[in-house]
Amino acid sequence: MDTRIPECIRPILADYLLSLRTELPDLIDACYIHGSIALGAFNPHLSDIDFITILTRRATAQEVENLKAVHQELELIYPQWKLEGSYLQWEDLGRSQQEIAPYPYYHDRVLRSAGYHDVNLVTWWVLKHRGISIIGLPSQMLAFAVDWNLLQIKMKENLNSYWVSWTRSPSKVAYLLTDSGIQWAVLGVVRLFYTLREHDITSKTEAGRYALVHLPAKWHQLIQEAINLREIRHGSSYRSKVSRAVEAVRFLRYVINVCNEQAS
């Protein structure tokens, strides 16, 4: 197995592939790992095992049931790991959600027979440039390309809609009172900062470390706090979660403004 796959999750991936080959030998053509593992940032406490499995054709109803059985068995054997992924065909790769017919996908420990899951330009970019082949051609040889300019446009739209809502929505601002809210929002927005500045995609933790170098020192306490939370380091440098949340809102507004200024 590829050396980039962490040792601790190799058994579940090996059993996953064995089960697919046993239960659906004529249906599986390739399998790729993307997400945090492909970016070299797998966190055993937080990370999913993100996969895209390529089917030779559309799965029948019985084959979908077989896929459900495969995942149910893996859940019993490996309850500590969380698989997340889609069952696509070759012609689906690189396309927008609107261009793809509904497909089976596995999310939150449930196999859905048809729908859409985590198909976007970032997914395709990571798959193409960092993806790990478990079965099939190296990901760099896959027959699709990602339009970086379009990806940046979509990221800016996300910045000025989803991330702006974190500074305005009462429920999202309230979520910033939690540790998970802080690490999600602070590292999420600096990941966009990194991408728009460096024309590359990295993990949340690495984006946080990048921000410590490239953003003013006044924000370093908050950024380091988010990194520590992401890496499950106990203890906070803040006396109050309220003051931390207030600072997080200010930080989000600041980074959004910086990103918009450098994009203009």
Score class of each variant (00 low, 15 high):
residue 113 S to Y: 04
residue 113 S to H: 06
residue 114 A to F: 03
residue 115 G to Q: 13
residue 116 Y to I: 01
residue 117 H to F: 14
residue 118 D to M: 13
residue 119 V to I: 15
residue 121 L to G: 06
residue 123 T to E: 06
residue 124 W to P: 02
residue 125 W to F: 13
residue 125 W to L: 07
residue 125 W to H: 11
residue 126 V to E: 05
residue 126 V to Y: 12
residue 127 L to S: 05
residue 128 K to F: 04
residue 129 H to D: 05
residue 129 H to S: 07
residue 130 R to I: 02
residue 131 G to E: 11
residue 132 I to W: 04
residue 132 I to V: 15
residue 133 S to W: 03
residue 133 S to Q: 11
residue 135 I to G: 13
residue 135 I to F: 15
residue 136 G to S: 12
residue 137 L to I: 06
residue 137 L to G: 03
residue 137 L to N: 10
residue 138 P to A: 08
residue 139 S to C: 13
residue 139 S to M: 09
residue 141 M to H: 14
residue 144 F to N: 12
residue 145 A to I: 12
residue 148 W to K: 03
residue 149 N to I: 02
residue 149 N to P: 01
residue 150 L to M: 13
residue 160 N to G: 07
residue 161 S to P: 01
residue 161 S to V: 07
residue 164 V to S: 10
residue 164 V to K: 14
residue 164 V to F: 05
residue 165 S to T: 06
residue 166 W to A: 08
residue 168 R to E: 14
residue 171 S to T: 13
residue 172 K to Y: 11
residue 172 K to Q: 09
residue 174 A to H: 09
residue 175 Y to D: 11
residue 175 Y to G: 01
residue 178 T to K: 07
residue 179 D to R: 05
residue 180 S to D: 08
residue 180 S to G: 01
residue 180 S to H: 09
residue 182 I to L: 07
residue 183 Q to I: 00
residue 184 W to Y: 15
residue 184 W to H: 12
residue 185 A to T: 05
residue 186 V to W: 03
residue 186 V to P: 01
residue 187 L to D: 00
residue 188 G to S: 06
residue 190 V to Q: 05
residue 194 Y to K: 02
residue 194 Y to C: 02
residue 199 H to C: 11
residue 200 D to L: 04
residue 200 D to W: 09
residue 202 T to M: 08
residue 204 K to C: 06
residue 205 T to H: 13
residue 205 T to R: 15
residue 209 R to L: 10
residue 210 Y to I: 08
residue 211 A to M: 08
residue 212 L to V: 12
residue 216 P to Y: 04
residue 217 A to N: 06
